[in-house]
């Protein structure tokens, strides 16, 4: 048997990814037809830049969802990383060290989430719902509710720079996406994510380190939230304790549009990226067409539901 043989499962995943891509192309075609400025290089770069934060969060969310969990705390985790990172920057901590510090905050929050879920035996939904309030509260208490201004230019240059016309945030998220893809599809950890999400008890009996696998998923999610926070405060030049509101929902939407099953066990990094870009494209295109924000929200909701319906109809009885 040669390596070209395709199983129904593999071809189904590829089929699903192709479907998401087709959806993006269709949406893009409508906007290109409606607006002259849509299909220009600056605007496309703009879309990628606008999608990069959600994509970043959604990458971590995808791994969590595949491992059978959910992370509702990503927005507040980002906010906490942002304010602590900003405080370090303003206090004169060297930029690389401050960034590492902020990322460590994100990873630590993820560790706490994971520990409560694995060792504490609590439901992921409940733990991260608690985290949603807890981390937000910590960010607000720490700052007294006021934004931290005066981030050094040296730091801001990192996020506002570009290489060959591609903004740095887009490059960073692209690299993280490749890493996430390699983890999911090429590393034992990725197989463990899918095994634990697909059938935790069978995975445990087969010798999968279930606790460690779950921990890793939440820590990666926390890390991604902190990266997104760095991108955002670099662009804004300030860290607001209220940043990241509703990020978790955008990220879940991107993952779901991209084919992640909220039951766990299945999902795709490529699909999630396209899902995030679809959401970004929608906002960008509708703005270009001067559609009001309320209607943009309406369109986003419709796209998510339509994507799920198409998913259900095309997956037939296999789902």
């Amino acid at each position: 048997m040669n390596s070209m043989t395709q199983s129904p499962l593999l071809s189904r995943i590829k089929f699903r990814e192709a479907g998401t891509l087709l959806g993006l192309i269709l949406i893009g075609a409508v906007f290109a037809w409606q607006s002259d400025t849509f299909l220009t290089t600056p605007n496309i770069i703009n879309i990628l830049q606008q999608s990069s934060i959600n994509a970043c969060i959604a990458l971590g969310m995808t791994l969590v969802i595949i491992s059978g969990g959910i992370d509702l705390s990503v927005g507040p985790v980002a906010a906490l990383s942002a304010v602590l990172g900003a405080a370090m920057l303003v206090a004169g901590v060297p930029v690389p060290l401050a960034i590492l510090g902020a990322l460590a905050v994100g990873v630590f929050c993820g560790f706490v989430n994971g520990a409560l879920i694995t060792w504490g035996g609590l439901q992921p939904f409940i733990v991260t719902l608690g985290g949603l309030s807890l981390y937000r509260a910590l960010a607000l208490i720490y700052t007294g509710g006021t934004p931290i201004f005066g981030l050094p230019d040296e730091f801001r240059a990192l996020t506002n720079g570009s290489v060959l016309g591609v903004p740095n945030p887009v490059i960073v998220v692209a690299i993280l996406a490749v890493l996430a893809w390699v983890i999911l599809n090429k590393s034992p950890l990725g197989e463990y994510f899918m095994a634990v999400g697909g059938n935790p008890e069978a995975a445990r009996i087969a010798g999968v380190p279930v606790t460690l696998t779950r921990q890793m998923a939440y820590m990666i999610s926390g890390f991604m939230a902190a990266v997104a926070a760095m991108i955002l405060i670099g662009r804004l030049g300030a860290a607001e304790p209220t940043l990241g509101t509703l990020w978790e929902l955008d990220a879940i939407a991107a993952a779901a549009i991209g084919g992640a099953s909220l039951m766990g066990g299945r999902g795709s990094i490529f699909g999630t990226l396209i899902g995030a870009i679809i959401l970004g494209t929608l906002r960008n295109g509708l703005t270009l067409m001067n559609v009001q924000a309320f209607y943009q929200l309406l369109a986003t909701g419709i796209i998510i539901i339509v994507a799920m319906l198409i998913d259900k109809l095309t997956s037939g009885k296999q789902g």
């Binding site: 499962l9 593999l10 899918m194 095994a195 697909g198 008890e201 069978a202 995975a203 087969a206």
Partner: peptide, 23 residues
């Protein structure tokens, strides 16, 4: 309930306990 990871291929289901050996 306790044996298989239903959606994953035979290869993965075989390799799970010995991932280190196959990496």
């Amino acid at each position: 309930r306790d044996g298989i990871i239903r959606h994953r291929p035979i290869t993965t289901n075989i390799g799970l306990p010995a991932m280190r050996r196959f990496s």
